[in-house]
């Protein structure tokens, strides 16, 4: 079975997000006064051949640990979507 696995990667609390800061400044300039903060992350979509959704998720998590995520600065979520 082929599964689509979504990976969301966020910068950890306390890690300076210069991109988020710049985007936030621009949004404020556009008049979005309600905006408090912006954090910029990454979205990665994986197509994985696996026996089950659980296996696809485990594989996705393993890919995160081995390459996709730097756990010193990033947190991640892995979700099997179909």
């Amino acid at each position: 079975m082929k599964y689509t696995v979504d990976v969301l990667i966020y910068l950890k609390e306390g890690v300076l997000d210069t991109q988020g800061k710049a985007v936030s400044q621009s949004l404020h300039r556009l008049g979005f006064d309600q905006l408090d903060d912006v954090r910029v992350g990454k979205y990665i979509q994986l197509a994985i051949n696996a026996q089950s959704a659980e296996e696809a998720k485990t594989l996705g998590e393993k890919m995160c640990s081995e390459l996709l995520v730097n756990e010193l600065i990033e947190d991640f979520d892995v979700k099997v979507v179909d």
Partner: peptide, 16 residues
């Protein structure tokens, strides 16, 4: 740093 031969991470410049 990515190989963990040295500690830390190198992020985008403050000035972007």
């Amino acid at each position: 740093t990515e190989s963990h031969l040295l500690p830390g991470a190198i992020l985008a410049n403050r000035s972007l």
